[in-house]
Design a protein around this nucleic acid. Sequence first.
DNA 1: ATATTCCCCTGGAAGC
DNA 2: TGCTTCCAGGGGAATA
Length: 275
Amino acid sequence: MPELPEVETVRRSLLPHLVGQRIVNVHVRQPKLRWPVSTEALKSGVENRRILDIRRRAKYLLLDVEDNVVVAIHLGMSGRLSLVQKDRTFAKHDHVIFHLDNQMQLRFHDPRRFGSIDSFFRQQEVVHPRLAHLGLEPLDPHAFGEDALYTQTRGKKKPIKNFLMDATELVGVGNIYACEALYAAQIHPNTVSGRLSRARCGRLAEAVVSTLSQAIEQGGTTLRDFADGEGNSGYFAVRLQVYGRTGRACGVCQGLIRRVVHAGRSTFYCPKCQH
DNA sequence: ATATTCCCCTGGAAGC
DNA sequence: TGCTTCCAGGGGAATA
């Protein structure tokens, strides 16, 4: 489900509701997520402490809690965070419940359980095994752009589609936005990364940034079940040019959108427009 | 270094 | 109404 724009949408929707709230209790109903939730560490880290800020790194939401505690939440494929009244009955797959002191609850819901929740001290953030290896942050203008993409791709033989989706190279870009950005930049997904000219790196970097930014403006892409912290769907799905559009006409050339597979993931592209 | 495949899971859609 | 098969927004690990 969630790629960078969706995670960022969730972050923005939760921010005004959560900052300043005190977490009075955490209830782990199902600890078996992508990695086992350490209930003890989570409870001792956050209970009776206030949420100070919510940041995002890659596809992780980072809750800054008092006393330098960080809670890193990854939504995986089907994860959802929602703010609900405390008397709302639990739904199937409501795995972790943060009880707040304003009678609301932040609930982590995740049918497929590919998501994760970790807690640690802020100091450990840069060396944490799940965060340390992360690549360029595409919406940080100091980190990402033509120069960074050009430099980062030199010597890399993997197809550019795989590069875009490799979180050790560039973070936040998943299957939807990798396809869409390549289409916008008119670059064929099989192109050897290291062979991209500087100019094409410039176009691609621009396409990545604009695609992600526009998706955030639209509140993300809701294909099936994505919703922000308040339950709102995103509206970028209507703007998708290639993702999920196998056999349909390209908006530019009227040629047919093709589906191929890269690293086990569907890739959608226009064979006529993308070279 | 990179490519492929499988795995962790549930559930929805399509095919028969 | 089933039942089976395929597919899914992520990502890590094992294997070639």
